[in-house]
Computed example of a mutant assay.
Amino acid sequence: MVTLSPGLLLIADPFLKDPNFSRTVVLLCDHQEKGSLGFVINRLFDQPLNELIPEVLLNNIPVYYGGPVQMDTIHFIHRTPELISGGQEILPGVFWGGQFEDVISALNRGLLDSSQVKFFLGYAGWTEGQLDEEVKEKSWIVSQTGAGLIFDAEEQQIWQQSLRNLGSSFAMMANYPIDPSLN
């Protein structure tokens, strides 16, 4: 059994039918006995940040669908602890959260761009024991990652690339059709 911890990726099994998570990759940010929380890193939301937060002056900052829970909240991960105070390091060089005012200020002053921060509308959440059970049932493939895949990869390629990074036995899964009965 895999030991779940912040910073791991949860790669959706190719045949996972839940429309919220089909062909997604979730960055796990918190995993405790009482529950787990993460963000879908490869599903772009249809509005940029400035349409959701008018204080943001830039109009090209993407927002991602973080998950189906609390779709009225915005969360973020970043690589700039020197600009954003209060974040929690979830893997080397990647921080979850921090002072939202710091983020807005850094964006508006041109000190931050989308290669350093990623925003999410909502989050993926699991109750006590739920994620462990889903991993045991093989709904998720658990993997380690680095900041490059999270911040630099094209969102349409993250799911396939995550599987390929696991080696040849998983790489072929990246080409599985969504519905094998149509093949």
Rank of each mutant, 00 (worst) to 15 (best):
G93I: 06
Q32W: 03
G167K: 08
L166Y: 08
D132G: 10
L49Q: 11
G167S: 05
K138Q: 13
S36T: 02
I141R: 12
G110P: 06
R79N: 11
F119E: 00
M1H: 05
L8D: 00
D13N: 10
P92E: 02
V135L: 09
F39C: 00
L10V: 02
D46F: 07
F76C: 09
V135F: 08
P19D: 07
S162E: 06
K17S: 13
P62W: 04
W159L: 11
C29D: 12
E89Y: 00
A171R: 10
E155Y: 13
P68R: 07
Y176R: 14
G97L: 01
N165K: 15
Q70I: 02
A124P: 01
A12N: 00
L52N: 14
N183V: 14
T3A: 06
F95Y: 12
Y65N: 05
D152C: 11
D113P: 04
L27K: 12
G87H: 01
Q70K: 13
D102Y: 02
E33N: 10
F120I: 04
I178R: 09
E133D: 06
G148Y: 05
F119Y: 00
F95H: 11
E33R: 12
E101D: 14
M172G: 08
K136D: 13
Q130K: 13
L37W: 01
F76H: 08
Q157M: 15
V26R: 14
S168P: 12
E154S: 07
E55Y: 03
G87A: 08
G122T: 01
Y65E: 04
R164S: 08
F120V: 02
N165L: 14
T73A: 15
Q47W: 00
F170G: 13
S143A: 15
I104T: 09
E101T: 10
L166H: 11
F120W: 06
D30W: 10
R79F: 05
I77M: 08
L83W: 01
P54V: 06
K34L: 00
Q130D: 09
G167Y: 03
P180N: 13
S169N: 15
Q99K: 12
L131P: 03
R43Q: 02
G93Q: 05
P19H: 11
S5E: 01
L44H: 05
T24Q: 14
F119L: 02
V117S: 04
Q144N: 15
G125Y: 10
N108L: 07
E82N: 15
S181C: 02
N20Q: 10
D46M: 04
S105K: 06
R23N: 14
H75C: 13
N175E: 13
S139N: 15
F100C: 12
I141P: 11
S168D: 12
N183S: 13
L9V: 00
T127Q: 15
G67A: 05
G167P: 03
Q88L: 09
T73N: 14
L10M: 04
L16M: 10
S162W: 06
V56T: 06
L16G: 03
I90P: 03
Y176N: 14
N42Q: 03
G35D: 04
V142E: 11
Q70T: 06
T3K: 11
R79A: 09
W96H: 05
V56G: 04
L91A: 00
Q32H: 05
V103M: 04
P19N: 09
N183D: 12
L111F: 02
F45D: 01
D46Y: 07
Q161W: 08
A153W: 07
S169F: 14
